[in-house]
Simulated scan of single mutants.
Amino acid sequence: MANFALLQPIVSIILIFFHSGKYSTLAASQMAWCVAKPGSTDQMLQAGLDYACNHADCGPIQQGGSCFDPNTLVQHAAFAVNMYYQSMGRHKWDCDFNDSALLSLTDPRGNAEVDTELLQSNIDFACQKVDCSPIKSGGACFDPNTPMHHASFAMNLYYQNNGKTAASCDFNNSGLIVAANDPSDNTFLS
């Protein structure tokens, strides 16, 4: 079982999409977005924001711009790295930012910040369908003991066991499918 204790909340639930084919073919063959990676530090986010804004138009996240609000580092970094990724040709290497970004296969604009009540509802639903014992007290994935981390685990397990489809990751528009590293072994998909 993957240890999801390493995943940190950013803006929305991030579910991991495991793909056995060519990663670059996957990104090029369908719409993809570059998003901030859970666990990225403020320093990593700021570095990504600065680099991306030196190579892509970040006017919309400047004061008075259409994407200025919410005025948070993670929101501005997410906008900037995606703008850079889209403008540079949507190659997997255009969404690395020193391992502080991920390719999302689901449009992240539909995923607003998720409240605790919705997270608990997602946990309750998923755990009726899959074995959530690893996130119970004393379980291998109990820590960190936060609704965000427990929901990420439960939702991902549900997704993995129910066809890995967009529908099995929707969770009232609070799930997000990303192409990423497998957190259980820290190797990059290729």
Results as ranks from 00 to 15, higher is better:
residue 78 A to S: 15
residue 145 N to F: 02
residue 20 S to H: 02
residue 164 K to M: 12
residue 69 D to S: 14
residue 180 A to R: 00
residue 66 S to L: 07
residue 82 N to D: 15
residue 49 L to P: 05
residue 70 P to A: 12
residue 77 A to L: 08
residue 46 Q to S: 10
residue 93 W to Q: 10
residue 109 R to H: 14
residue 72 T to L: 02
residue 161 N to D: 07
residue 87 S to G: 09
residue 4 F to H: 13
residue 30 Q to G: 10
residue 120 Q to P: 06
residue 66 S to A: 15
residue 47 A to K: 13
residue 134 P to N: 03
residue 53 C to G: 01
residue 2 A to N: 08
residue 142 F to K: 13
residue 99 D to Y: 14
residue 174 S to Y: 05
residue 17 F to A: 00
residue 74 V to Y: 04
residue 151 A to D: 00
residue 26 L to D: 01
residue 16 I to C: 04
residue 85 Y to P: 04
residue 37 K to R: 15
residue 149 H to C: 07
residue 126 A to N: 12
residue 132 C to F: 08
residue 87 S to P: 08
residue 69 D to H: 10
residue 106 T to L: 08
residue 180 A to Y: 00
residue 1 M to K: 13
residue 117 E to L: 06
residue 43 Q to T: 12
residue 64 G to S: 06
residue 115 D to T: 05
residue 125 F to Y: 15
residue 154 A to M: 10
residue 124 D to Q: 15
residue 165 T to Q: 08
residue 20 S to M: 00
residue 167 A to D: 13
residue 97 F to Q: 11
residue 60 P to H: 07
residue 115 D to K: 08
residue 166 A to L: 06
residue 162 N to Q: 05
residue 152 S to Q: 14
residue 39 G to E: 02
residue 7 L to G: 01
residue 88 M to G: 06
residue 68 F to Q: 04
residue 180 A to V: 00
residue 189 L to Y: 08
residue 76 H to M: 10
residue 186 N to I: 03
residue 9 P to M: 05
residue 33 W to L: 09
residue 106 T to C: 09
residue 135 I to E: 05
residue 147 P to G: 07
residue 167 A to L: 09
residue 80 A to F: 07
residue 188 F to V: 07
residue 111 N to F: 07
residue 92 K to H: 09
residue 126 A to H: 10
residue 37 K to E: 09
residue 170 D to P: 01
residue 128 Q to I: 12
residue 16 I to M: 05
residue 87 S to Y: 03
residue 42 D to Y: 07
residue 130 V to G: 13
residue 139 G to I: 06
residue 114 V to C: 06
residue 96 D to I: 07
residue 84 Y to E: 00
residue 91 H to S: 13
residue 131 D to I: 05
residue 136 K to R: 14
residue 188 F to W: 11
residue 18 F to S: 11
residue 176 L to V: 08
residue 181 N to L: 13
residue 57 D to W: 10
residue 43 Q to Y: 07
residue 145 N to P: 02
residue 38 P to G: 15
residue 106 T to Y: 04
residue 82 N to I: 10
residue 180 A to M: 00
residue 163 G to W: 08
residue 149 H to L: 09
residue 32 A to C: 12
